[in-house]
């Protein structure tokens, strides 16, 4: 039986920890503090919650002003309301002057947005931010990892984006497992037949697929790429040199996200054959999280089939 964790609670708990240690930490809410069950933060640090109402562009502008005058603001709301509605504010007023603002985007992916449907399912956020210099982009896999990623990124001087979900993510890592920024993590190493690169709330599925592949006599490596930027290009290239083929699995459009990042490494630093799983240049729809991932090509079966396909390409 799988265990549910919550990326939203992971974020909230890390906020309480960070605010206790650092007086410059503030929480910007655009009527979003209840989204992350933020009541404990509000109870402990009422003077460090800045409620701005439903105004995300204003929220990012305010974050810019705070960060340029001694504070470290964390702004958390739905991923697309930050990366799309306030995209220009994130770029020109935070990324360009390289300010210490933290963005936490909820409802990442189909899994994150699930029954809300497309307006609240964000499958382009990572790709939008990859093009902005100075950003650190983190996609932790579960609640405990979000907590660790928040702490691990606390001292980064420039802007940071952390992708979270709906608050119902399957636990992948044991509590206290460190989150290392900028490094890939080989979670399973069953051989050199194929590499499975993934991040976020599909990692549990990838682990299951690796197990099924092993039963079929196929040795897969499961590689978590939780830091999309700065990308561990050398680590990825060394995996690819060993396997010669790979599958990427991301709850995001296959354009500009993890799949594109791995393709860039293959093109520039290595060689190999790639199959990209994720949204195939389409929008999602309302549904239950696991149902949606299955319906949009990210089932365990799809991952196994994609691994086989990648190996066939390699051997052609």
């Amino acid at each position: 039986m799988s265990e549910v964790s919550s990326t939203r609670i992971g974020f909230r708990d890390a906020m309480v920890t960070l605010a206790g240690e650092r007086e410059e930490v503030v929480f910007i809410s655009t009527d979003s503090i209840l989204v992350v069950r933020g009541e404990p933060f509000f109870e402990h640090f009422p003077e460090r919650v800045i409620e701005l109402g439903i105004s995300e562009q204003n929220g990012v502008g305010v974050a810019s002003g705070l960060a340029s005058s001694g504070m470290v603001p964390y702004i958390c709301t739905y991923a697309g309301f930050l990366t799309m509605r306030a995209c220009e504010q994130m770029r020109t007023f935070v990324s360009y002057p390289n300010l210490k603002v933290r963005f936490v985007g909820a409802n990442g992916g189909l899994h994150g947005g699930n029954r809300e449907g497309v307006s609240h399912q964000f499958t382009e956020d990572v790709g939008i931010l990859r093009g902005m210099p100075n950003f650190t982009i983190l996609c932790p896999a579960d609640g405990a990892q979000v907590y660790e990623a928040m702490l691990a990124s606390a001292d980064i001087e420039g802007p940071v984006y952390i992708r979270i979900g709906s608050g119902r993510e399957e636990r992948v890592f044991a509590d206290g497992t460190p989150f290392e920024i900028g490094k890939i993590r080989v979670m399973v190493d069953n051989g050199n037949d194929v590499a499975l690169f993934a991040h976020g709330f599909v990692l549990n599925r990838v682990l299951e697929a690796a197990r099924l592949l092993k039963e079929k006599g196929i040795g897969a490596k499961v590689v978590e790429v939780a830091t999309i930027k700065p990308l561990d290009g050398e680590g990825i290239a060394s995996i690819l040199r060993a396997t010669g083929c790979a599958v990427t699995i991301e709850d995001h459009t296959i354009i500009n996200g993890l799949g594109s990042a791995i393709a860039e490494v293959i093109a520039e630093e290595s060689q190999g054959y790639l199959v990209r799983l994720g949204l195939q240049d389409v929008y999602g729809e309302s549904g239950f999280p696991d149902e949606l991932l299955d319906a949009y090509g990210m089932s365990v079966h799809d991952i196994v089939a994609a691994a086989t396909r990648a190996m066939e390409k390699k051997h052609q």
Binding site: I50, G61, A63, S68, E88
Partner: peptide, 20 residues
């Protein structure tokens, strides 16, 4: 004190400085 140029953003940035 502030990076600007794209119109409409300055009052928000100033509000952040004032809140600080």
């Amino acid at each position: 004190d502030a990076t600007t140029g794209s119109l409409g953003n300055g009052v928000s940035v100033a509000l952040g400085m004032a809140l600080s």
